[in-house]
C-alpha cells in the first residue's frame, strides 16, 4: 500500500513536470518557397523573444558572452523522422570600454560578425527568425503535410563541461568500505543533488502543419 502511494505520487509529479516542461508551444509560422529553399519566419505574438527574461536580458550587458542555439527539424506530421535539420548559433558579447555589442552569427549562409550600439538591437539579432532557409524544397514532396519543430536554448552547456562538473560533484566520499559497490553497482547513493542546468532557458516550439501546394 505504501509503495503504491509513493509510486503514484512520484508518477504524478513526473507527469506534471512533463506537462509543464516538455510540451512544445504551438506557434503559427510563415513558410515561403524561395528559389530552391523553404524559408521560415516567426509571426507575432510568437517567436523566440521570450527566451530572454529580465535577468537574461540584463546579462547581455555584463560583458560575459551569451549564446542562443536554435535547433530546427522538419518532420512529416505523423512521424518523428526529420527530413531536414538546421542548427543556428548566435552569440553576443558586450565591450565595456567601447560600449558596443559584438554579435557572432552562425547560420545558413555562413558566419558573420556585426556590431550594434544598443542592447535592444542585440536582442533582436539574437532572436529574429526572418526568411531563414530551413530546408531544400527537394526534400519536401508536394502536398505532403509537415511540421517544424524548434528547440531554442540560451547559454547551453557542453556535454564535456557537464561531465566535468558532475565528476567534481560526485567526488568526496573518500573511499570507505563500500568498495565493491563502486565497481559492481550502478550507482553511488547520494542525496546531494545540486542541479546545473544544461541551459539557462529552453523553448520548445512546434509550428502549425503545413504543406507545399501543387504549383
Amino acid at each position: 500500500m505504501r509503495a503504491a502511494i509513493v509510486a503514484a505520487t512520484l508518477l504524478a509529479i513526473a507527469a506534471t513536470a512533463y506537462a509543464e516542461d516538455e510540451r512544445p508551444e504551438i506557434q503559427r509560422m510563415r513558410f515561403v518557397e524561395s528559389g530552391d529553399d523553404l524559408q521560415l519566419s516567426t509571426l507575432p505574438p510568437g517567436g523566440i523573444g521570450k527566451l530572454f527574461d529580465t535577468t537574461a536580458y540584463e546579462a547581455l550587458s555584463t560583458g560575459i558572452p551569451s549564446t542562443v542555439v536554435i535547433r530546427i527539424q522538419i518532420t512529416p506530421q505523423d512521424s518523428d523522422e526529420p527530413v531536414a535539420e538546421q542548427l543556428i548559433q548566435r552569440s553576443v558579447v558586450y565591450d565595456v570600454w567601447d560600449e558596443i555589442y559584438t554579435l557572432r552569427l552562425d547560420q545558413p549562409g555562413g558566419r558573420k560578425t556585426i556590431k550594434v550600439k544598443y542592447r535592444a538591437e542585440a536582442l533582436k539579432w539574437l532572436t529574429a527568425i526572418d526568411d531563414l532557409p530551413v530546408a531544400r524544397l527537394a526534400v519536401l514532396p508536394i502536398n505532403q503535410v509537415f511540421v517544424l519543430k524548434m528547440v531554442v536554448e540560451l547559454n547551453p552547456v557542453s556535454k564535456e563541461t557537464l561531465a566535468e562538473v558532475r565528476r567534481w560533484l560526485s567526488q568526496g566520499n573518500g573511499g570507505g568500505l563500500d568498495r565493491g559497490g563502486a565497481f559492481f553497482g550502478s550507482f553511488v547513493s547520494v542525496f546531494y543533488n545540486p542541479k546545473i542546468a544544461d541551459a539557462d532557458r529552453v523553448l520548445r516550439i512546434r509550428s502549425q502543419p503545413f504543406y507545399r501546394p501543387t504549383p
Binding site: 547560420q107 545558413p108 532557409p133 547551453p156 542541479k195 544544461d198 541551459a199 529552453v202
Partner: peptide, 18 residues
Amino acid sequence: TRPAFAGDPTHPPSAPAS
C-alpha cells in the same frame, strides 16, 4: 547534474543564405 540536452554546435550550417 543536468544531462546534456543540446548538441555542441561547432559547425555552422551550410545552407543558402538569407
